[in-house]
């Protein structure tokens, strides 16, 4: 390839180049991966496939689970009994050995999830975690001053409501089932799912519903 940027494009842009040298961990990852492939422990195709699996997961899946639980009491009870098989009912597959506990928010209990040791997250149903979830301030403070953390997210939980923080350290992952907001009785399952965002399923916010101005 020449430096000259001249091919068929309907827009202009600077040549796309990689100038930075790979860092220590980039090199280590490449070296380990190439060795594992070379030793035939797994194939390049399997790595590509797994990345594709992970990238196909988004909070929209979790929102679908929440909306179903809000509208179908029998499903909700199965989901609270076994989070993994509940999600699997909706076609959300789990590609690893993790189990899922669905934590129901009520008028008496508000759940918050964290992984103090690393970044365990219900990836099969929510996709990749947000950066703040993986960083030390959230991980350390969520278990020490959860109310202050929630307030920074704009969430105020009354003193008589119990805050329950679940610290994910094992083969169990968590998904928060937020409370269905008032005034949503007329919404169907799809419309309800649209209200449910990632942060509500981590437990840092509650689901809000504002009727659109006519």
């Amino acid at each position: 390839m020449s430096d000259h940027h001249d091919h068929d494009h309907d827009h202009d842009h600077a040549p796309i180049t990689v100038d930075e040298l790979p860092g220590y961990f980039d090199l280590m990852e490449t070296a380990v991966r190439e060795l594992l492939v070379e030793r035939k422990l797994f194939k390049a195709e399997e790595i590509r496939r797994q990345i594709e699996v992970l990238d196909s997961r988004t909070p929209a899946l979790g929102a679908k689970v929440v909306a179903r639980a809000w509208t179908d009491p029998a499903f909700k009870s199965r989901l609270l009994e076994n989070g993994r098989s509940g999600c699997e009912e909706l076609g959300i597959t789990f590609y690893d050995d993790t189990q899922l506990i669905v934590l129901e928010n009520t008028g008496a209990v508000h759940n918050l999830i964290v992984c103090t040791l690393c970044s365990c997250y219900p990836r099969p149903v929510l996709g990749l975690p947000p950066d703040w979830y993986k960083l030390k301030p959230y991980r350390a403070r969520a278990v020490h001053e959860p109310r202050a953390v929630l307030e920074e997210f704009g969430t105020f939980i009354p003193g008589d409501v119990e805050i329950r923080v679940s610290d994910s350290t094992a083969i169990i992952r968590y998904l928060v089932l937020p409370m269905r907001p008032e005034g949503t009785e007329h919404l169907n399952e799809t419309q309800l799912a649209d209200l449910v965002t990632r942060d509500a399923m981590i437990g840092v916010i509650q689901v809000a519903y504002k009727r659109e101005a006519a």
Partner: peptide, 28 residues
């Protein structure tokens, strides 16, 4: 693994919040 319930006030003597607030964790 056991899901263990621990009061926040047990973990942090200076905990700011309700005495009902708690932590849940799976311990081997």
């Amino acid at each position: 693994y056991y899901r263990v319930a621990i009061p926040m006030t047990e973990i942090w003597p200076d905990y700011i919040g309700s005495a009902n607030d708690g932590l849940r964790i799976e311990i081997f």
